[in-house]
Design a protein around this nucleic acid. Structure first.
Lengths: 158, 158
DNA sequence: AGGTCTCCGATCAAATTGGTCGGATAAAAT
DNA sequence: ATTTTATCCGACCAATTTGATCGGAGACCT
């Protein structure tokens, strides 16, 4: 119940990873391709590619084609909210469709609905919660340095 | 995304209706059967029955068998939280399974997961939100009196 | 200019959810 | 007390959504 889809999970993981590499203190800012993210997190490559496409289309990441291509954040990590990410991947988010539906014909009990009004508060609270948290906030939670190409920090287990 | 299932919707509607009749100021406290709720809200009878079974099994409503049977709230409306209702209908709620999973084998990226820690705050906030709201809070949102068997109030449209 | 590596759109399989049916049970009427 | 009737209850089947995959087009490096 209320579970995030796997695509959403993968998207958030990818963004956290990209942001960490791009703005992390140790690693150099570099473009990251889909394969690297997929292998690092053990997720299917093609599916992750599809997710990143959606994020690119919505202006969250910037795609670069060709060899040595890949993705990088389109804007600062602090301006990308979780809500924006989820909506880019899975469409408008909400506990019910009737809060942002144009056609009202979909819900048969729309007229006699007795929970639409009270649940709107829940809807708004959840959205506000997700729209206040950014991928920058997720960077703090990363416990271990991921990849260290040049220098070597003391033995952080990988 | 993050949409409530229809079973969850139906369950909440039913509880709001039962609570309104049982504790409403005008209507007499009476047992309500599945058919009445289903017809009032235009939802499939058998599916609603299944939902109410789950709620009965979890001690949220009390079932009474036989003719003139039906359901009534097992405890006060103020003590039944939305979270309890949703969990009774659809199982444990959370934006990811890994927060209450026994077996850790399900999630392949569990070891390399970089969003589990930061998203836990979101998880807790949502749960707290749903666990603070009760069906009593939903009763305030009901705009129209539903059924009036004995006396007649002025023309409320049905 | 050729080759290679990347992104990109359309297509297919699996899982969850929505919906349905017949049997068991208990209360009421005869 | 027995029959009848209306309800709850558990197992079964279909539909929608989600997860995953494949082949093609475009861009960069050599």
């Amino acid at each position: 119940m209320l579970k995030l889809s796997k695509k959403a999970d993968y998207g958030l993981m990818a963004l956290q990873y990209i942001a960490s590499v791009q703005f992390g203190d140790v690693a150099q800012a570099r473009i990251i391709n889909t394969k690297e993210i997929a292998e690092e997190h053990h997720i299917p490559v093609e599916l992750l590619a599809k997710v990143l496409q959606a994020l690119a289309k919505h202006g969250i990441v910037e795609s670069q084609n060709g060899p040595k291509g890949g993705y990088l954040l389109a804007r600062n990590a602090g301006t990308i909210t979780i809500a924006q990410v989820l909506e880019a991947i899975e469409g408008p988010l909400g506990i019910a469709d009737c809060y942002h539906d144009k056609d009202e014909s979909t819900c048969l009990q729309r007229e006699h609905c007795n929970i639409r009004t009270p649940l709107r508060k829940v809807q708004d609270s959840i959205y506000q919660l997700l729209n206040n948290m950014t991928v920058e906030d997720m960077m703090g939670g990363t416990p271990l340095i991921t990849i260290q190409p040049t220098t070597t920090v003391e033995g952080v287990e990988r």
